[in-house]
Structure formats: C-alpha cells, structure tokens
C-alpha cells in the first residue's frame, strides 16, 4: 500500500500580494520498501511536497491518500495518518525542547500513548537504528554537534515506528562519513520494509542509492523514474541547479564512444567495466 499524491497544487499566502505557487499539479507515489528521492533546485517545492505527504499542508487541488485511504486533514484520522508517515524536517534542531536526548526521543511515541517498557524499547531501537551513540542519551540535545543533532532528530521520528520515513535534506551539514552512514541507515530502513522519501539537492546520492527519483523545477514535475532514466533525461535536457556527477558524465561520454559501461555506477565499478571492455577488445583484435 503506497502513499499517493495525485496531481496536487499548492500556493502559499493565497489572497495576499505575497502569493507564491509552490506546487503545480505534481503526482507522486512511494511504496513501502521503496526509496524515492525528490530532487530540485532551491525553491522548487521539495519541502512543500514533503509536508503534503505528512498532511501538514492541504493541497489546493488534487489529493493525498495514505495506504488507500484519502487523508482528510484536520480530522482525527489525520493524526493517525501522521503517525504512519514520519517527517524529519530540514532544520531538525528547531524542534528540540527537552532537557535530555532521551526525553526528546520519547516525545513522539509518548504522544501516541506508548509508555513504560514499550517506550524504552522504542527509544533503544531508534537509537541503535539511527547510529546515535547511546552514551549521549542523557546529555542535553542543544549541546550536540550538528551531525549528532540530526541523528537525534531522525531517532526521535523513527521512535514512533512509522511505515514511511520522509526526510527533508537529511544530508545537509553532514561530512562525507556522516553522509555514508546516513545512506546506510536509509538503505537499512528501506530493507526493513519502510517507504523512504529523501528530499535532497544532491543528485549524486539520489542517483546512486534510490529506487526512483522525482525531479521538480518551479513546482512542476520535470521527470521521474529510475535513476538511469532520470540521468539520461537530465543529460539531454539540463535542469537548473542540478549537476550531473562527474562519474555519470564520464560514463555517458564513454557510451557515446561506443563503450558499453553502465551509466550509473561508482568509480571502482567503472574502472572494472573499462578493464573488461579493454580485455575483450584486445581478444577480438588479436
């Protein structure tokens, strides 16, 4: 059962001089066990879309349904739906209020009436899944580093055991090692059967790791599909603010020269592919 956003449009500040249209007829699906990336330049509507998946925003037209039921915001159901779709915000530190990391992580599950041993289990599970150092549980969330804060924020959302996890720019401000860990974490979450939506402007990680990609520009869908398909499309029709990673550009150039290497792969894979190609050519030539 998926989250389906059907042809949704949204505008901020409707009816005032500052009205700005953020989404124009965007459709979007994410299944459980699937990792979808939403990419686009700054202001393309990614965060707005993410907030629709969690019913924080109501589309001006179009609809959002979660697991088959159309979600009516403002109803009691929307609270239930919200539990199933965990949303990690772009600036997670803006949500911290508790004195300890533990209390911060307990907040979401206890809002849904989880308590006692079950609550502790939720916290422990979330901490180990998000790669947070358990020694930090009793420290003050405001005293943590940026990367640790982000982990706390993620842990505080997955502690409510959602079926879908939507992350707005989760890699922002992380170092290379942090990004790698995060990607590992997200793969694990996906493999555990959750639907993952990663909002990012890092096309590289989106191409390498997600199952599907949605590209937004000015609130409209430019292209969506598998990483290969999307990469192909963007190479042929450049999108503002999205840079094709060098490896992919290199692979594309090789393919244009008739060399059969995969369009999307890591550097070592690429080297291997080129090696195989050369071997074969040598054999044919001799």
């Amino acid at each position: 059962m998926p989250i389906v956003a059907d042809n949704i449009s949204y505008a901020y500040n409707v009816g005032t001089s500052a009205e700005s249209v953020a989404l124009r007829g965007v459709s979007f699906t994410v299944e459980r066990g699937e990792w979808v990336s939403v990419v686009g330049h700054t202001g393309s509507g990614k965060s707005t879309l993410a907030q629709h998946l969690n019913l924080l925003l109501t589309p001006r037209s179009g609809s959002v349904s979660i697991d088959g039921a159309e979600a009516k915001p403002g109803s009691g159901e929307s609270r239930v739906a919200r539990r199933r779709v965990g949303l990690v915000f772009q600036y997670p530190e803006t949500q911290f209020f508790a004195e300890t990391v533990r209390a911060e992580i307990e907040f979401a599950p206890s809002n849904w009436g989880v308590s006692g041993g079950a609550l502790k289990a939720c916290v422990d599970e979330a901490v180990s899944a998000s790669g947070l150092d358990p020694a930090l549980l009793e420290s003050n969330p405001f005293a943590l580093s940026g990367g640790q804060r982000r982990r706390v924020a993620i842990a505080s959302v997955i502690a409510m055991r959602p079926d879908y996890l939507v992350l707005d720019e989760p890699t922002a401000g992380l170092d290379a090692a942090g990004i790698r860990e995060l990607i590992q974490f997200l793969s694990g979450v996906r493999d555990a059967g959750l639907g993952v939506v990663q909002v990012t402007h890092d096309l590289r990680s989106a191409l390498s790791y997600s199952d599907r990609i949605l590209v937004l520009e000015n609130g409209s869908r430019v292209v969506s599909g598998t990483p290969e398909f999307v990469a192909r499309h963007i190479i042929d029709n450049p999108v503002r603010g999205l840079v094709i990673p060098p490896v992919v550009r290199f692979a594309d150039a090789l393919r244009k020269k008739g060399m059969n290497v995969p369009l999307i792969c890591e550097v070592d894979e690429m080297v291997r592919a080129i090696g195989i190609y050369k071997e074969r050519n040598k054999k044919c030539g001799s």
Binding site: N54, L56, R79, R83, G86, A108
Partner: peptide
C-alpha cells in the same frame, strides 16, 4: 516551522 515539526511528532 516548530509547530509543524511538533505536530508531525504527534503533539496534541
């Protein structure tokens, strides 16, 4: 922004 973050964590 804060309101949204807390509501999506089930704040009531």
């Amino acid at each position: 922004r804060i309101l949204k973050a807390q509501i999506s964590r089930g704040a009531d």
